[in-house]
Nucleic acid binder design. Structure first.
Lengths: 190, 190
DNA sequence: TATTAAATGGAGCAATCCTCCACTTATATA
DNA sequence: TATATAAGTGGAGGATTGCTCCATTTAATA
């Protein structure tokens, strides 16, 4: 769980730097869990027992830090999704993916709004996540399970919305599922 | 366009206070338009030529200020919607309302995220807006145009999402319409 | 062991939020 | 018209956070 996690990257880190990087990530996970994704970065540095300068050197922006934090979970999510190819039809696979991603995106309070930005940070996990989403969408469209005028951005928009609702309402998986299903099926009766 | 705009309110304002209130609103509209809904409130006060204390006295929170700013437009939106009862069927009315609200919610950069909160500020316009939305939803459900397991919160969630997408993508009415229609019809083929 | 490029930490400036309160002013009343 | 007073005002100032910069320390290499 150590090496490939970093951003698509140039020279390897010095030993102390790598150590500190891990501490920052661990601290950030704690602090963001407790106080939300817009908690003070000074607090993160303090908890990691690292100077604030060190934190900024490693993660120039908050999004970079969030991106790195999401990395592992997004990788897992994408891998997970690929295993479903065998046991689920394309539509169901897409649905499952959307639900998982929506839940992921509300892992820290305040993460949902940033989902779009974070997914664009160049992390292996972020790449894997978007790639998998696009693959699933295409697959579902080829199988005529989903309309072809739907873009991945449309999906992302809806997923963001759903996690946003979860964050605000403080609700749970049932609501996520409900909203995903609404979106899949449409609210209009026929 | 002067009196009923205030929050559901107690004693009337003194002349100077009322004057300042209007200047603050005007300044806020300018500043928020230029720099987004999370612009500095000190800047707003400066532009209104008013002390920062005065601004806070009148609008204790940023949401209160945003609520007041949305007031007029929400009132108009609700009134507008009611006139459509004659010329549109329930489903189409709801659709039109959603589109208008979504566009409204991206009037200032950064407003969308706050839509939920803002709508809860006790302003006549906010009340009118939510009331009208609920009415339209019920009406559409009675007419069997919309599934009955859809709540107003669900709608709000989707509308927020859509304006969020608009804000981020910097896109326009066509995208809003597209997303609303996706949500109404569902993305799944049958 | 000496060299040096990489990494560190935190002082410090800037931006913003928001409170508090000494002063000013509109208005109701005599 | 004069005056009492409740309502309103402005902005200094404390607190928080973001982010940069650079003098110092340290890991890796020869």
């Amino acid at each position: 769980m150590t090496e490939a996690i970093q951003t698509i990257d140039e020279t390897p880190l010095r030993a102390d730097a790598a150590r500190n990087r891990e501490r920052i990530l661990a601290a950030a996970d704690e602090v963001f869990s407790e106080r939300g994704a817009d908690a003070s970065l000074e607090d993160v540095a303090k908890r990691a027992k690292v100077g604030i300068g060190t934190l900024y050197r490693r993660f120039p922006t908050r999004e970079a830090l969030l991106g790195a934090l999401c990395d592992e979970r997004l990788l897992a999510l994408a891998a997970n999704s690929r295993t479903r190819d065998d046991v689920m039809d394309p539509g169901a696979s897409l649905r499952a993916f959307m639900i998982e991603l929506a839940i992921h995106a509300s892992h820290y309070q305040g993460l949902a709004v940033q989902l779009g930005t974070v997914l664009k940070s160049h992390t292996t996990g972020c790449h894997a996540g978007t790639a998998e989403g696009q693959r699933l969408l295409q697959r579902a469209q080829k199988a005529k399970a989903v309309a072809k005028n739907v873009s991945f951005d449309d999906l992302l928009c809806v997923i963001t919305a759903i996690s946003l609702a979860v964050e605000q309402g403080g609700v749970v998986k049932s609501r996520v599922t409900h909203l995903v299903d609404l979106f899949l099926g449409g609210i209009r009766l026929r």
